[in-house]
Structures are given as structure tokens and as C-alpha cells.
Design a binder for these strands. Sequence first.
RNA 1: GCGUCGAUGGUCUAGAGGUAUGACUUGGGCCUUCCAAGCCCACUGCCCGGGUUCAAAUCCCGGUCGACGCACCA
Length: 508
Amino acid sequence: MVSADIKEGRRDEIAELARRRGFLWLAFEIYGGAAGFYDYAPLGALLKRRVETAWRAFYTREGFYEIETTSVAPRDVFEASGHLESFTDRTVVCKHCKTFFRVDEGIDINKSCPECGGALEAAGEFNLMFQTTIGVPKGERGGKVLDKSEGYLRPETAQGTFLNFPRLLRFNRDKLPFGVIQIGKAYRNEISPRQSLIRLREFTIAEAEVFVYPEEKNKHPRFEEVKERKLRLVPGEGAQAQEEMEKTVEEAVRSGTIANEYLGYHMAKVGEFLEGIGIPRDKLRFRQHEPEEMAHYARDCWDAEFFSDRYAWMELVGVADRGDYDLSSHASYSNTDMGVYPQPQSQVQAEGEAEKAKAKAKIIPHVIEPSYGIDRIIYALLESSFYEEQVGKEKRKVLRFKKEMAPIRAAVFPLLNRDELKHKAKEVFQDLRNEAIFVEYDDSGSIGRRYRRQDEIGTPYCITIDYDTLEDDTVTIRERDTMEQIRVPVAEVKEVLLKGSYGTGKQL
RNA sequence: GCGUCGAUGGUCUAGAGGUAUGACUUGGGCCUUCCAAGCCCACUGCCCGGGUUCAAAUCCCGGUCGACGCACCA
């Protein structure tokens, strides 16, 4: 299934472009770099900001509030969440063929190598979380090691949300369902990070935690809005992957392919978001985790995957049903009440002891969680937007970002490098910047060169000031994908840039 | 982590025991009335550390980073 038609050259071209034009730089480069760490360069930071802004807007429309919790947490948190145990791999290595194995039910030190039959030896423990020390370790004050405050960098933002659940519930006036989002850095000390943005040690994750009554998982209030949406699905339940299928969300939920409406609703939303920012629909699918692939906290999980020309199918978003795993764990470890009444107590009109008791018995909500890997989405945008085409004698490289996602909205040029044109062009440029539109000014080289420069970084519009501009205050606006131009009054430029179309029928 | 291969201006590359080739890009100038035109000038480089040698970018060792395979990716 994952026999990708790899286009080596093309990927390298994207990496090269990203480096050269200022999207992505290896971190700590002057000290030789470090695997798994990338810095976002100016255009990359802009692109990332556009994606994050779109994401916030998208979930704000769902009625979710954003919170921001810490990225360092004490040991207790991850003891309770299960990350300390589940993130730790004990490994063994074969003395003969040097193959490494993770210790699990099938493999331990007393067995022989499944590959070659050689003897195994312990190869150490490895925890995927970065450990740190919080405050001054007590032992160091007195010169003796007595104690230290053990902390970890978070491997996901979700735990911060769960820890605040009792207060969030109160904030939402004791009513379910509600959703909470977070965007932030997360850290995983991968054994061997590779493939640029695909596997990083420090990355940006955007997560929504949706808290719902367990018995209402099949009653999503807005399911109607998404039920017609078609999803490309690869179910994996029952240990073996099944055929890929296309179903509407409604069909998938009714037939049991997707376990419940909440999961289906949020999968549909994930698809809507990814397509909305410009990831082609035909490069997206949802693949269900197989049981042994599932995270320790998940009872069901679907990955939204992107088909990369370079890396084949890769996960962009995970949509997990975490059940009551996290809230229950934290409730018992911290001895905190994480329960919710089945309905507001003021509305209880129970008659008889049994019904009253039922109305008073708290239940632990379930959590549906879409979890987006922002960096991978950035990669997917770069790769799927990149085109190389022949224009005359030259090759044109162009990033066809959706105009809302493009780092730079428009560039302003004087047609010729002459003072009177430059003066006017700078004026137009500054006016647009004052309107909070991200524009760039360029007067170097020929006009054609400047167009190509902007194509390569995905700028959708180029505005050119010529001698007619000085006469009648009109400019040409050239569109990136068609390379066609229209002439518009300066006063209407802003409108064209923001709306994207002008009354000519041409799609700008 | 293991294995194989690699690392030369901003990018891509030639070369090779005597401080380096070319192209593109970039900056400045001339020219230019719409898609990388032309001419002139200029900047910038042998991944890091150690060793061998009169001399190391070149050979050797170690490291770092990258690509690929194995493993890992909760």
C-alpha cells in the first residue's frame, strides 16, 4: 500500500528552496547543527503564523476557547499521564547482527534474535521525554544529594488542558460538551530524527480537547453540518488493514466504520481545515490505527495522512478518542474530583431514591482530540504548492500557496529604476503596509526578474507602477498563477488584494 | 542507536599533497516602458577537532550534520 513513487530530485529542490529563500534553516548551524531542530526563517515564520492564525480562527468558530499552559511540568504529571512508563523503551541488541529491538511482550533479554538467532544483550533505557531539574536540587544546597525536583518538557499540550479540567468545567458553567484548544511547542527526544520537518525534537502542536458525556458521543449537536462530507478512509480495526473506501461521514458513522458522531464530526473538520489552507484533497486520507499502533491513552485513533511525493503517506493530524483515560488517571493520582454530574443539579427533578442517586453520581467525561502537527503541515504545504514550469526559455519555480497563506501578499515595483517611478511605488507600498497588508517593495534588476523572485516565494500579486500611473493613478496587478495583468485604480488595489477578484471575471 | 555513502562561496558544482574551477544568486553602476535580456565592477568558500607531512581542502583517526537501509516514531 505504501509503495511510493519517490521523486528524489523534487524533494531536494524544495529543501533547497526553503533554505535559500528563507523559509527554514537548520538550527545551531554555526555550531554544526543538531539533528531534529529547525528554525523558521522570515518567510517560514510568516507561513507558519498564517497556518496558526487560520487554525485558531477555525476552532474559534467551533466555540472553543484557547488556553496556554506551561511546557515544563513536574514528574507527577507524567507519572499520572502514563508518559513516563509508556515513553520509556528498554532496548536490546543482537550481539551477532546488531539489530536493535524494543523490549515488549515478544522480545526480552532471555530470548534469541528474531532476525538471525543470535544472543541478545541489554542496550539501555530510553525515554522520549526531555528531563530537566526544577529549581535548585535540594541536595546541592547542603552538598549532599538528598532529593531533586524532577521535571520534563511536555510531549504534547493536552496534559496542560487536562490538569485544568475542573476549572475549565467551572468556566463553562458546569456544562458539557465544550472544547479547549492549545497551540504550542512540544518536545520528544527522538532516537533518530530525520526528514526535515517530519520528525523533529522540538515541534509545534495544535490540539483541541473536546469534553463530552460518554453517552452523548453519538449526539453531536452539529453533526448535520458535516454529514454529507466525503472522507477517504482506510479502516484498520481488527488487526488487519482493510481496503480503502470513500464514504460520507454519515455513512461511515452509521455503518460503524467510524465509532461515533464526535469522532466523525472532528475528522470531517480536520479534512475541512486541511483543504481550506490549500492541501489538495486527492492527497489526503484518514487511516485508522491498528490496536498495537495506538498510543497508551487512546481507545481509537484516525490519522489524517498526506501523500508526499518524497515520503509517501505521512501523518499530519491524529484524531483520537482518549476516552476517560487522562481525566481518570489525574483524578486518582492527584486525588482531585474530575467528575461531572450527568445533568445540571438545578434541573434534576428526580423522583425516588434511585433516580436521585443516579442524578448525583458523577461521571468522568470522555475526550475527543484532534492533534495537528503544524510543522508537518508546513512541509505538506511547501511540497504540494511547489511547481516548476517552462515559460519561454526559462524554468519558472512557483509556490502556489492560497493567497491567504502566502507569506507575502503582494510586491510593489516601479517598472523602471527611475526616481519618479520609485517615489510613487514607495508611496503605494507604504500605504498598503499602513493598511496592515503584508507587502514588499523591490526595484532591483529587471521587472521579469522581480516577478520570478516573487513567484518562487509564492507571492500572489505584483503591483507595478509605470508612467501611466503618474498620469491617471492606475497600476497593473499581475497574478502569480496565470501571469496575467489587469489595470486598476490605486484606490482599489487594497480591495483586489483582499478580495482576490475584480470585476473582470479574471480570478485574481 | 547500527551500517553504507557524502560534506568545497548564499545555491549548485570542478578539482586535487603546494591556500581552488565554473555557473547561478546577491550588492553597486550603465541600460531597459511588463515576465530571470545585455555590459561593467564587487563581495563571499574547502564542516569541526586531532594526527601524518617542509606543506593538508586533499591522506589517516575521531566528531558533527545530511541522504539511504535496519531499528525507533508513545
